[in-house]
Design a protein around this nucleic acid. Sequence first.
RNA 1: GGUGAGUUAGUCAAGUGGCCAACGACGGCGGACUGUAAAUCCGCUCCCUCCGGGUUCGGUGGUUCGAAUCCACCACUCACCA
Length: 399
Amino acid sequence: MLQEALKEIKRGAAEIIDNERIEKLLKAYFDNKETYTVKVGFDPTAPDLHLGHTVLLQKLAIFQKYGAKIQFLIGDFTAQIGDPTGKSATRKTLSAFQIQENAASYKEQVFKILDPLKTEVVFNSEWINPLGASGMLTLTTTFNVARMLERDDFDKRYKSGTSISISEFIYPLLQGYDSVHLKSDIEIGGTDQKFNLLMGRHLQRAYETGKEQAVLMMPILEGLDGVQKMSKSLNNYIGVADEPNDMFGKVLSISDELMWRYYELLSAKTLSEIEALKNGVADGSLHPKKVKEELALEITARFHSEVLANEAKMEFDRVHSNNQIPTEIEEFSSDGEISITKALVDCNLAPSTSQARRDIKQGAAKINQEKIDNEHLQLRSGEYILQVGKRKFAKLKVS
RNA sequence: GGUGAGUUAGUCAAGUGGCCAACGACGGCGGACUGUAAAUCCGCUCCCUCCGGGUUCGGUGGUUCGAAUCCACCACUCACCA
């Protein structure tokens, strides 16, 4: 029982620091029902969770199954520092109202996976603000610059001559201090967070809290391109809040190779089940597309429902396998005659008139399934189905 | 505070007075092929309803018939010195 729990907890983990401690905590739970805390931190600026985040969340859900109380930390204070990597864009300070709103949005998404009864949502401004200048100073005495520069990304930036702001040095310290305040037993995060996660251990020791948190790191999930990490800014993500059709389509668009990665980190299937699928594909008894569809169904069903997932699959087959028009298309209307280029822009099918013209020239634009060959075409009153490329559709009513 | 180097499109990066809306690479988009996959091949990639025109190369001002390119100042980044 204990062994199984441990196995489940360790599945997919990239690295675990202080394995022993985790084992002890679990043993205490199984023997005496003692609970423990697992901390995870999120930035309040980006409340749109994607599958990359859910790798962590799913892991937390497993912990909850085995006696953990989750400390879901929203870094409202640390967000003010953020990561000013070059760029002129000064970090926007979020208003208290915005933070509350983002937090609410987080909860809504997060509780699709986590058990709210075993989750405590906390904000770090609550204890960092009272620190004051002197508290902050004390914090900075616990660490030195040379060690700070050991951190991989600082090191790279320093060597490559990119600027590093002093405030960025404070960031890991504050994150570590969160663990001091919360007396966390375990903290989990992505492998890119290793330095910050270890800082929690360091500070818990420096502040003589009597414990040092164990650290469990999950691998970073690659985005749809299969190369860079999944992130909103790279636009290679599958959002938790994505529509079923989008979600299904996006999963299906990943490469076969990447599919196995997603299986490992996102699927509820056991490792041996996944191994069986792999063998099936390798010896030709399973078509990779079928295997990918299964994954797409599983993921879509998790965030929506099985019914909606199946509908998404049917819609997908309809549009892509049979080249039909989707059942639901966004509708637009126009008063009076309109030129085709303007129509494409107005319907969000092209970002600019110039682009619209190019699309037409390249034969990418269609009206009612027919290629447009005249870029000066005027649309008179009536209803049109406009299409650019394979996936972008819109319905336009001209009156 | 001093000295030197730098700032070009989504990113990297050429271009040092007219042939520059600006080489190239990556990315992105479209087409062919497919399993809306990958790989591959081809095309496009500032804006403007065509012809043609407009606005760009950190910012401001200047030199010049003409500036991404020269000059001045400002801002930002990096290195070395203090």
